[in-house]
Design a protein around this nucleic acid. Structure first.
Lengths: 203, 203
DNA sequence: AAGCATTGACAGGGTGCGCTGTCAGAACGA
DNA sequence: TCGTTCTGACAGCGCACCCTGTCAATGCTT
């Protein structure tokens, strides 16, 4: 027997499977954010240059793939903003500067690949199977953001929660309109207004 | 010949057609906001107690029906908030009270029938064919709200636009979470925080 | 009562997609 | 070189839905 656990194309079986999964995720992002194409397994497989067979190797179904993509993007946002905040901290920044750094990291990430914002913020809201998770993630970010702002104790618990949701929800809509070109603004302006709003909300 | 332009069941042909259209819109709302059912023409017709045939009498296709529902709800919100503001005006209220009255009218409308909020705010964002119109509507409301607040001239045009989108988008997300029961708050608290935020944003 | 518009039920073709199975060829280890 | 595994292309069944057409029943008008 051959190949049994061995390499193929210079890669191990695990590595190849991971590579295919990665390709499929990228393809999911491409197809999902393309208004012209409707998101179907066949389309994703074509985009990835793989056949349906390998789709099932990595994902149980279409929603599963989208869910995985959502988690992946959320992870990226989380680590990017966390890293920015930590770096600002290390550089001796104050709370305002740290907040701004985190927001800037978020905006930069969306500028680098707007499709990620479209998928995670807009499209995910349109898939019933993902909506719950998307809401959860928004609330997590709302809490994290409020904590990041490290401000005076809020008026009440529900008030802080409300303010956090207002801010994150607003950012989602704002960034959406911005990515659509519906709002003329530079990244700096977005970061500016957002930072000011966040600090104002918790003041 | 009979019926030709005559009445049927005590109603004229126009009236009956309008009644069917109305039933179909209500059915669209019911099916669309039901997570258990997927939104299909057949399901809507069943819900309305009508056959597909009458669906095409009122709408060209599924998206057309959803679009009509979206417009209808947007109209309701617009007139409810406008009326509340005018009534407050007539009662000699100041700008803050008028703003609060409008926001309260909006919240009351969603409390009366949460499905309308779900459909217009959440679900409409998930339908590619409606997304553009939904964004347009949000922007209209953002502008109207900013005007309603009647405040100091904004720092810049884009700043006012950004603030408006932040507020309306935040309200959408907040109200969504609230309708879902994810946020424990009374209508009064929602109205309170929203009013304060709006005035703060444009201060 | 007669006749016709109106209505509701239903059936069936067409389509797009999910999902599975088959099969030949490529790449590998021995 | 040989045998095995891995890979990609494709065909086909099943299903859900869109959409149209047919047909009998109903209710109106004269």
């Amino acid at each position: 027997m051959a190949g049994r656990g061995g390499t193929y194309g210079g890669l191990s079986a695990d590595e190849r499977a991971r590579q295919r999964r990665s390709k499929l995720l990228e393809a999911t992002l491409a197809v999902w954010t393309d208004p012209e194409r409707n998101t179907t397994m066949t389309a994703i497989c074509n985009e990835a240059g793989l056949t349906e067979r390998y789709f099932y190797e990595s994902f149980a179904n279409l929603d599963d793939a989208r869910r995985a993509l959502l988690e992946s993007i959320a992870g990226e946002i989380e680590s990017a903003t966390r890293r920015a905040a930590e770096e600002a901290d290390a550089a001796g920044a104050d709370a305002v500067q740290r907040t701004r750094a985190a927001i800037r990291a978020f905006v930069d990430l969306l500028v680098a690949d707007p499709r990620k914002g479209r998928a995670a913020i807009i499209e995910a809201g349109g898939v019933p199977a993902l909506r719950g998770r998307r809401t959860e993630l928004l609330r997590e970010f709302a809490h994290a953001t409020a904590a990041e702002a490290q401000v005076l104790p809020e008026r009440s618990t529900s008030d802080g929660e409300i303010a956090g949701l207002l801010f994150i929800g607003g950012m989602a809509e704002l960034v959406t309109a911005w990515l659509d070109g519906a709002v003329q603004a530079t990244p700096a302006e977005i970061v500016d207004t957002a930072t000011r709003t966040l600090l104002g909300l918790h003041a």
